[in-house]
């Protein structure tokens, strides 16, 4: 053992310090001071109007209290229409988005598709992921006009980027042997996908799809801010008019639906896996 070389007597009586996470002294101090300077600079450039904030606290309290007494009735028809529109957009865009993202995911998986197809599909995914939903919505509203169609297209487009990427990763990491066994039986490409690939990625596809439905609903709630339909417009109006009790009612409905969707997705995912 090399304990013979190591003389413990040297260490005894000397203080011990935990070895630092960043080994180099210089680098460690540069990182720490850099971070502190950044924080100070960031703080300095945010001018907070504290008296305005203080005034706002009163309104903030009103808003919190509104949650104990939400007003579902006085704008019930607006809320109802907005919610229905949000749900319609969610359902339609999820269905279309999922249907389109399956072939794109296949195309973006290097182990099932040729290089040119792979590059095109990865490109589509990259564009869809890099563009914020709300920005896409602004552009689509400008092109297609106000209304839920723009919202529907936005959410479908966003679904493609999200779902295809994760699904493609799942296909790429699937068990090769199972797929090869199907290939060895002389199956055509479509048969191979159907029998060798699909059964392996199906549980993940279902889980991700339901998760995406959840996200789409949440996103549909803000698309109304830029005129792309859904509950967002109603919510925006409520805030503009300082109708906190109506806003609270809308937010509560959103929270409840999201919770219900999460609960549902938990059940479905537990069943398919």
């Amino acid at each position: 053992m090399n304990t013979d070389i190591f003389n413990v007597q040297v260490k005894i009586g000397k203080p011990w310090k935990k070895p630092p996470f960043v080994q180099s002294n210089l680098l460690r101090w540069v990182l720490i001071t850099g971070f502190v300077i950044y924080l100070i600079a960031a703080y300095m450039t945010i001018d907070v109007n504290w008296s305005r904030v203080y005034e706002g606290l009163e309104r903030g309290k009103k808003f919190v209290l509104a949650f104990t007494n939400p007003d579902f009735t006085s704008r019930s028809s607006d809320i109802w229409e907005g919610m229905i529109e949000s749900i319609l957009m969610t359902v339609a865009s999820s269905v279309v988005g999922i249907l389109i993202s399956i072939p794109i995911a296949l195309g973006a998986a290097r182990n099932v598709s040729p290089l040119p197809v792979y590059l095109i599909c990865r490109g589509i995914i990259a564009i869809s992921r890099a563009l914020q939903e709300i920005i896409v919505a602004i552009l689509l509203v400008a092109i297609f006009g106000f209304g839920p169609l723009a919202g529907f297209l936005t959410l479908s487009f966003a679904t493609i980027g999200f779902l295809s990427k994760l699904l493609a990763e799942d296909i790429e990491s699937m068990d090769k042997v199972q797929a090869e066994a199907i290939k060895a039986s002389g199956a055509k490409w479509t048969q191979w996908i159907n029998y060798g690939v699909q059964p392996q990625v199906m549980p993940r596809l279902i889980g991700l799809s339901i998760y995406r439905v959840d996200i789409n609903f949440r996103e549909s709630a803000i698309l109304g801010l830029v005129g792309a339909g859904g509950i967002g417009a109603t919510l925006n109006t409520a805030f503009d008019r300082y109708e906190y009790d109506t806003a609270a009612a809308i937010l509560l409905i959103i929270i409840v639906i999201v919770m219900a969707l999460e609960y549902l997705s938990g059940i479905v995912r537990a069943r398919v896996q």
Binding site: M1, T3, K11
Partner: peptide, 17 residues
């Protein structure tokens, strides 16, 4: 700390502290 070093030395691991 001294005791920790002695014990580690006793079990032959002081160099791994």
């Amino acid at each position: 700390i001294d005791e920790a070093y002695r014990l580690l030395d006793r079990v032959g691991l002081a160099h791994m502290a």
